[in-house]
């Protein structure tokens, strides 16, 4: 079984936010309005995490594309009372909107605060142009990045229909495709030949809140100073 992971090279990343837009469009995310923004209720599965430092009178801002870390030991899945969120066989932390009761326990349990709740019936400006592979979420459920799981499904289905193995680059999440500088690399971490596996062992590699024991599958590569 593959274990999908991602490497984000902060040296290459220009924080252009193309990935943010690609993600939102691919997954039919509501664009949000001014009230949502005021209440901090905008839903972006992938967003830019600003980390500001002030050292010796110099202010420095690092902008980091941040999405669900697809932990190997995800704290959110343990606390769900109805198994709406769980670790699926592909190593993706899944969320089933139709099962979710909206208790928001998983969102609280997530140390990255990167799961989202639909506070209202989400507006859908996409109408018939919405991605048919992804449902429009309902009012009162939690949602999160699924590593564009529908793309994996499509790739698997096509491969099986044509009776062959799934190709290496056949499955790529929308954010990876959209990245103009190829800062995001995606693939199977367990496959030692893959570029992801190689990069995730780079000396520049670090992971967020690894000390909590969540074992995230998204690796970041530090900027070269």
């Amino acid at each position: 079984m593959p274990k999908f992971g991602m490497v984000i090279d902060l040296e290459k990343c220009t924080a252009c936010q193309a990935c943010v837009v690609a993600c939102a469009v691919e997954n039919n995310l509501p664009p949000g309005n001014i009230n949502d923004a005021q209440m901090n209720r905008i839903i972006r599965w992938l967003k830019i995490l600003p980390i500001s430092e002030a050292k010796g009178g110099i202010f420095k801002m690092t902008l980091i594309p941040f999405t669900c870390q697809q932990c190997s030991r995800p704290p959110c899945t343990y606390v769900c009372p109805v198994s709406a969120t769980y670790k699926n066989p592909d190593g993706i932390v899944a969320q089933v909107y139709w099962r979710c009761i909206g208790c928001r326990y998983c969102v609280n349990a997530c140390p990255y605060t990167i799961k989202f709740f639909n506070w209202y019936e989400p507006e859908n400006p996409y109408k018939e142009n919405a991605n048919p592979d992804v449902s429009i979420r309902e009012n009162g459920v939690t949602e999160k990045c699924l590593f564009c799981h529908h793309r994996l499904q499509r790739a698997k289905e096509a491969a099986k229909y044509e009776n062959r193995e799934i190709g290496v680059d056949e499955y790529q999440p929308a954010c990876v495709e959209a990245c103009p500088t190829k800062a995001i690399v995606f693939g199977d971490i367990e496959d030692a030949q893959s570029k992801v596996a190689e990069l995730s062992h780079s000396p520049r590699a670090f992971r967020f809140l690894e000390e909590l024991g969540t074992a995230p599958n998204i690796t970041y590569l530090k900027e070269i100073k």
């Binding site: 343990y78 198994s83 979710c100 009761i101 208790c103 709740f117 639909n118």
Partner: peptide
Amino acid sequence: SVVIDLGRPDRLLHPLNFPHLTSPIIWDV
């Protein structure tokens, strides 16, 4: 209060129908 707090009160019986026993909410129920 918990029922009021739920985003989907119509799925109130889900924890009984599909319990996930590692969840402290199930212990609470």
